[in-house]
Computed example of a mutant assay.
Amino acid sequence: MTPPQKPDPKVAAEFTSYYLQRATTEFAEDLDKVRAADDFKNDALQILVSALQQGTAMFSPEEQRRIVTAAARPATKP
Protein backbone atom coordinates (compact mmCIF):
# COMPACT_ATOMS: atom_id res chain seq x y z
CA MET A 1 0.00 0.00 0.00
CA THR A 2 1.38 3.38 -1.01
CA PRO A 3 1.25 6.27 1.44
CA PRO A 4 -1.23 9.05 0.62
CA GLN A 5 0.18 11.66 -1.71
CA LYS A 6 0.82 15.08 -0.23
CA PRO A 7 -1.05 17.90 -1.92
CA ASP A 8 0.86 19.93 -4.49
CA PRO A 9 0.17 23.63 -3.68
CA LYS A 10 -0.09 24.56 -7.37
CA VAL A 11 -2.53 21.74 -8.12
CA ALA A 12 -4.53 22.56 -4.98
CA ALA A 13 -4.81 26.22 -6.02
CA GLU A 14 -5.84 25.30 -9.57
CA PHE A 15 -8.36 22.78 -8.23
CA THR A 16 -9.84 25.31 -5.79
CA SER A 17 -10.25 27.81 -8.62
CA TYR A 18 -11.85 25.18 -10.87
CA TYR A 19 -14.09 23.91 -8.06
CA LEU A 20 -15.33 27.40 -7.16
CA GLN A 21 -15.98 28.22 -10.80
CA ARG A 22 -18.03 25.05 -11.24
CA ALA A 23 -19.87 25.48 -7.93
CA THR A 24 -20.85 29.07 -8.66
CA THR A 25 -21.99 28.09 -12.16
CA GLU A 26 -24.06 25.15 -10.91
CA PHE A 27 -25.56 27.07 -7.99
CA ALA A 28 -25.85 30.47 -9.69
CA GLU A 29 -29.59 30.87 -9.09
CA ASP A 30 -29.34 29.83 -5.45
CA LEU A 31 -26.37 32.13 -4.85
CA ASP A 32 -28.24 35.03 -6.42
CA LYS A 33 -31.17 34.40 -4.05
CA VAL A 34 -28.83 34.36 -1.05
CA ARG A 35 -27.11 37.58 -2.13
CA ALA A 36 -30.48 39.27 -2.75
CA ALA A 37 -31.78 38.41 0.72
CA ASP A 38 -32.52 41.38 2.97
CA ASP A 39 -30.25 40.09 5.71
CA PHE A 40 -27.23 39.42 3.46
CA LYS A 41 -24.41 41.80 4.40
CA ASN A 42 -21.19 42.49 2.49
CA ASP A 43 -19.07 40.75 5.12
CA ALA A 44 -21.13 37.58 4.57
CA LEU A 45 -19.61 37.19 1.11
CA GLN A 46 -16.28 36.03 2.57
CA ILE A 47 -18.13 33.51 4.75
CA LEU A 48 -19.99 32.23 1.70
CA VAL A 49 -16.77 31.86 -0.32
CA SER A 50 -15.08 30.10 2.60
CA ALA A 51 -18.00 27.70 2.93
CA LEU A 52 -17.82 26.87 -0.77
CA GLN A 53 -14.04 26.36 -0.56
CA GLN A 54 -14.49 23.80 2.21
CA GLY A 55 -16.03 21.51 -0.39
CA THR A 56 -12.56 20.97 -1.86
CA ALA A 57 -11.63 18.93 1.24
CA MET A 58 -13.80 16.09 -0.08
CA PHE A 59 -11.24 15.41 -2.81
CA SER A 60 -7.92 13.65 -2.26
CA PRO A 61 -4.73 15.10 -3.75
CA GLU A 62 -4.85 12.35 -6.39
CA GLU A 63 -8.43 13.27 -7.34
CA GLN A 64 -7.57 16.96 -7.46
CA ARG A 65 -4.62 16.28 -9.78
CA ARG A 66 -6.77 14.07 -12.04
CA ILE A 67 -9.53 16.69 -12.27
CA VAL A 68 -7.11 19.58 -12.91
CA THR A 69 -5.31 17.53 -15.58
CA ALA A 70 -8.59 16.57 -17.27
CA ALA A 71 -9.87 20.15 -17.16
CA ALA A 72 -6.68 21.40 -18.81
CA ARG A 73 -7.05 19.07 -21.82
CA PRO A 74 -8.68 20.64 -24.86
CA ALA A 75 -12.07 19.20 -25.72
CA THR A 76 -12.05 16.80 -28.62
CA LYS A 77 -14.67 16.89 -31.33
CA PRO A 78 -16.42 13.63 -32.26
Score class of each variant (00 low, 15 high):
F40T: 05
A37D: 14
D39R: 00
L52Y: 03
K41E: 15
T24A: 05
A23H: 07
A23D: 08
I47L: 14
M58S: 13
A51F: 03
E62Y: 02
R22H: 07
T25G: 03
Q53T: 09
K41S: 10
D30A: 07
Q46L: 06
V34C: 07
Q21E: 15
E29F: 01
V49W: 04
M58N: 15
A28D: 15
Q46P: 04
T24C: 06
F59I: 11
G55C: 01
L31P: 12
E63G: 12
E63Q: 11
S60Y: 11
A37S: 10
S50A: 13
L52V: 10
T25F: 01
Q54P: 08
D38N: 03
D32T: 05
F27V: 05
R65L: 13
A44S: 13
A57Q: 12
R35P: 04
Q54F: 00
Q53S: 12
Q53I: 02
S60N: 08
T25C: 09
T25V: 12
D43W: 03
I47Q: 13
R65E: 15
F27P: 02
D43F: 07
A37E: 06
D43M: 10
F27G: 07
P61Y: 04
L31E: 02
D38K: 13
V34S: 01
Q64T: 03
A28F: 10
F27A: 05
T24M: 14
D43I: 12
A44D: 15
F59Q: 00
